[in-house]
Computed example of a mutant assay.
Amino acid sequence: MRRTHRFLVAAALGLLLTGCSTRIDGTPAPVTAASSGNDRDLVKQYFKDLNESGDEGTSMQRDFLRRTQHPDYTDRLCDLGDLVLHIDPAMSTFREDPGWVPPESHSAEPPRGTIYVLGVSVSVRQQGALLGEQIGSQRVVVLEGKAYGFSPCPTG
């Protein structure tokens, strides 16, 4: 049991957010541009919905992550098991990152849509207990008026 708990904590603390780093690359997204302003709202809503799905439990969050996985990467879903994520975005770091390609991508081309990167604080919980927190960056892509993410994968 103790070994399993250590593994889960290591997996949670090693949670890999696609493109995670402490430096926020990209170009600041202008707030005054109509498309970027609307995209900013879509990205804010994406994180709000992600957190609300986690509040409803693991199966609801799993469904949310499946539905919002970027359409070009639906074969890259990860199962978080009984882990639940809560992600707080730092919207002041919201930037375009047009040349970004997901790690281990089969293509050298960026995903379709407008790619944004922003700083985030991630809390990982299991059955209500906090296992760990991580600060990094996360990409969200707006494609045809909808925000898409990339399912995070625990590492261990």
Rank of each mutant, 00 (worst) to 15 (best):
P89E: 04
L85K: 05
D63G: 03
T58K: 14
D82I: 04
R95S: 13
M91V: 06
T68K: 15
T93G: 06
Y73A: 03
R76C: 00
R62F: 06
I87S: 05
E56C: 09
D75C: 05
L80I: 05
L80Y: 07
Y73P: 01
F64C: 09
D82E: 13
R66G: 03
V84S: 08
D88G: 01
A90S: 12
M91Q: 04
A90Q: 14
P89S: 01
Q61S: 02
D75A: 12
Q69M: 10
E56R: 13
T93I: 02
M91R: 02
I87T: 02
P89H: 06
E56Y: 10
T74K: 15
H86G: 04
R66H: 12
H86Q: 13
G81S: 09
E56K: 15
I87L: 01
R62D: 05
R62Q: 07
M91S: 04
Q61L: 10
A90P: 00
L83W: 09
L80S: 07
G81I: 03
D88T: 06
D79L: 03
M91I: 08
L83F: 14
C78Q: 12
L80G: 06
H86I: 00
R66W: 11
H70F: 13
G57C: 08
L80C: 08
P71A: 00
L77I: 09
S92C: 08
G57S: 00
Y73F: 13
D82N: 12
D82T: 05
V84Y: 03
V84A: 03
S59M: 14
Y73Q: 03
R95C: 06
F94P: 15
G57M: 11
T68R: 15
F64N: 01
D72C: 10
F94T: 08
M91N: 06
H86A: 06
G81R: 10
Q61F: 09
M60W: 13
L77R: 12
C78L: 08
G57H: 06
T58A: 09
M60T: 10
P89K: 02
M60K: 14
M91T: 02
Q61T: 00
L77P: 07
D79P: 12
T93Q: 09
D72I: 09
D63P: 01
H70S: 01
T93R: 10
T58N: 09
I87W: 11
L85H: 06
Q61K: 11
L80V: 05
I87M: 03
A90H: 11
A90L: 11
T74L: 04
D75G: 14
V84L: 15
L83H: 07
D79R: 06
S92W: 05
Y73L: 07
L77C: 02
